[in-house]
Nucleic acid binder design. Sequence first.
DNA 1: CGATTCATTGACGCCGGCGTCAGGTTTTTG
DNA 2: CAAAAACCTGACGCCGGCGTCAATGAATCG
Lengths: 217, 217
Amino acid sequence: MPTPPQGKRARNKLANRAAILEAARRCFLEHGYEAVTIRDVIRLSGLAAGTFYNYFPDKASLFRALIEARLGELQEQIHAARERATDIESFFYESYLATLKIVRSDPAFFALMFRNEPVLRSFYNDNFFGLIMASLKLDLQDAMVRGVVPELDVDALTAISFGAGYELARLMVQDTRRRPEDLARTVTDLLLNGINRSADRPKLIRLGSRLLGGAAR
Amino acid sequence: MPTPPQGKRARNKLANRAAILEAARRCFLEHGYEAVTIRDVIRLSGLAAGTFYNYFPDKASLFRALIEARLGELQEQIHAARERATDIESFFYESYLATLKIVRSDPAFFALMFRNEPVLRSFYNDNFFGLIMASLKLDLQDAMVRGVVPELDVDALTAISFGAGYELARLMVQDTRRRPEDLARTVTDLLLNGINRSADRPKLIRLGSRLLGGAAR
DNA sequence: CGATTCATTGACGCCGGCGTCAGGTTTTTG
DNA sequence: CAAAAACCTGACGCCGGCGTCAATGAATCG
């Protein structure tokens, strides 16, 4: 796919599109979706006003184009991780690990996500992170039926484990020294065994605490 | 405080202020902070444009006025709940219970909060929910020093327990049949003992699951 | 190399929000 | 009851974003 098109015209089209997307990325990240005007993006892109409309009809399409590719990737990898899971421990660990690894691989992009959470919710009718939650809920229900996960309150468990992961992702974006493996380990252990019993085998977690927890922020 | 002022002028001032705030509440809830124009609020309030500026200098002040009172209340009640806590179990249970009870008492207000999360973050320099998180972290650290809570990775634990509570609050706003006591019980039990051991005593939680979990959404 | 196609440019008219302020109305004061 | 104060009103000028389109220039075609 890294083959650039032959014609000069076609190449320029790609360059313009890229310039617009890059300008948009910066704008949305810095000011947030709502506060950004198309004019802001146009100015930053260095192109003329009319040119913009050759590529995107409006702000919403622009924003969608910016996130859609990566969004699918995220969903797929998490799903694949859950497929691999054979027991409850790997179910949570692999889910969190896959998620946090992707977040770690492109913090800037996820900063953009966090920055614009409500827009994403509204765009995907409450379903961007909501989609992830929904799929988590389905997977959990499935796992419960199969006996892999005990039958608890599905919605509450979904909310709790999603919320935990969400904030951990945010934590990782803020603190670049955090490692996905450690956080995934910590949260999995916590969810499965609870604080009381996690204290019995504190090696891994306390190590993390000493190395990273104290220095964070 | 329910004594209305004597002068007709003073009474009218309160009425106007209330009308503006009520109009603002509706606008912000429906369209989100950024999308709302002062003109929208003015139109909905039924007053003249100039009048608005006798009460609020700009949109930000308006929004702040809308949330500030209740915000303090929230902080205080959570803090009070933690003061009461003598052990780890009551620490989490009382915190969650207090939070969820307040949320339950005025779902519309918290819908407004969720709807405008990023604005709140930016207004209180990442500190609206962030404030709550920060205080949670401090309380946790304190509890760890006192030996009430085992010494785990503070930041991770803060993120996990905050995220869990956040999503549970959202769940409660969406599903009005949810009871604060049940959810607080569930999440406390889960955090303390983990999924594995929670399954050993599933009475409370499975009850919730059967009654509510299946029907939700 | 001339003809043709096609994207880029940026000025333009429109629209709507912004905050103001002179004028009018109502309440308070004495 | 009249003078004064308070404050509400809404039209006004300004500003800036919006999407358009005729003109320009560059790439492609034959």
